[in-house]
């Protein structure tokens, strides 16, 4: 296969990994942020945690794989982005650490103060992760200062511009909605009613922020600076979000979940197509941008990694899908059935 087609394939593959991550871990983050607000009693909180208990760690591996694949396929991208977004990534890691540990530790002690502390660590960690990932992607869309040596020349405050912050908040809002829809599918009884009421309010906030973010993107001219016009993807993303509002009101939980999931997927599709073939756009000078051509690994490495991906990605998808099928039943607040 030609060098260029391998570079394109790996760009697509990394986009797929991020899309998978945002789709899957998106509802985990949402569930985590909703936890202390939605669960009033201890067993309610346990039911909420149990709804993602068996899958959150597997979902997070999508992020690790996206990171590892970026390192292997586009080392310059990995090096510039990870060192450039240093403090933001540090905070993201802190968020992921405090929430990951809390799922496992939270119910292993009965003291209410212990449990409450870990519940808030789940919520705060999930919020930090969602906010920072959203802000990071918004900044990638906007462009960041990169010099001729492929080095990021800004700092944390460069990323905290209005567009980045709006992107972060929009991501938080969408993930909250996604999490509420997921819980609507997984919980039962009073808790299910409560989360469905939550979803209605969350939908309004998410939709307002999402549309504002879309308009900002368009007006500021961050739109389609690469080769590919995202076409109807962004329009379809908005339509899916509006559709979700309808299904939430109709209490059609399955469709509501699918619509927000579609919105997340299509938003990412829009992002990656308007970026291509850049992977990091330089605001200092467009000529300094990192692209799939100047940031990639050698043809040999991309070829080897393609074979590895061809073998393992289908296997992973098969057993992860099987897990969701296996644990498809709703979670009750009956203590005998709760694990975490």
């Amino acid at each position: 296969m030609s060098y260029e087609s391998l570079q394109i394939i790996w760009f697509i593959l990394i986009a797929v990994l991020w899309i998978g991550f945002f789709f899957l871990e998106g509802f985990d983050f949402g569930v985590g942020m909703l936890l202390p607000f939605l669960g009033k009693k201890d067993e309610e909180r346990r039911a909420i945690i149990n709804s993602i208990g068996s899958v959150w760690d597997g979902n997070e591996v999508w992020l690790l794989t996206a990171g590892g694949a970026t390192f292997a396929a586009f080392p310059e991208w990995y090096a510039t982005m990870f060192s450039g977004f240093y403090l933001a990534l540090f905070l993201l890691l802190v968020g992921l650490i405090i929430r990951g540990i809390s799922f496992e530790y939270r119910s292993k002690d009965a003291a209410p103060a212990w449990r409450n502390r870990f519940d808030w660590m789940i919520a705060i960690g999930s919020f930090m992760a969602a906010l920072l990932l959203g802000a990071a992607f918004a900044n990638l869309a906007r462009g960041v200062p990169i010099n001729a040596d492929k080095m990021f020349t800004g700092n944390l405050f460069t990323l905290l511009n209005p567009y980045g912050l709006l992107g972060g908040l929009t991501t938080v809002a969408i993930f909250l909605l996604h999490g509420a829809n997921f819980l609507g599918l997984k919980l039962e009884g009073e808790l299910r009613e409560r989360v469905n009421t939550f979803a209605k309010k969350l939908w309004i906030g998410a939709t307002v922020l999402y549309i504002a973010f879309g308009i900002y993107t368009y007006i500021a001219g961050f739109w389609a600076r690469g080769f590919i016009d995202p076409g109807i993807a962004p329009i379809a993303a908005v339509a899916a979000l509006l559709g979700a509002g309808y299904f939430i009101n109709q209490k059609m939980e399955g469709w509501a979940f699918i619509m927000v999931a579609l919105n997340i997927v299509l938003t990412q599709v829009t992002f990656f197509s308007m970026t291509f073939p850049n992977v990091m756009l330089s605001t200092t000078n467009p000529a300094y941008s990192l692209t799939i051509y100047n940031a990639s690994s050698s043809q040999y490495t991309l070829g080897v990694m393609s074979i590895v991906a061809l073998i393992f990605v289908p296997i992973v998808l098969a057993y992860q899908g099987w897990t969701y099928y296996m644990f498809r039943q709703r979670i009750s607040t009956d203590k005998k059935t709760l694990v975490y």
Binding site: V61, T65, G68, A72, S297, T301, V304, M305, Q320
Partner: peptide
């Protein structure tokens, strides 16, 4: 990165997914 990234990516694809998914299945 051309060399070192590969085993890290394989590690995530081949090992981390296996470990985390099946441990979740085992716990629940």
């Amino acid at each position: 990165g051309d060399i070192f990234g590969a085993p890290l990516a394989v590690e995530a694809l081949m090992a981390f997914f296996l470990e985390s998914t099946f441990l979740g299945i085992w716990i629940f």
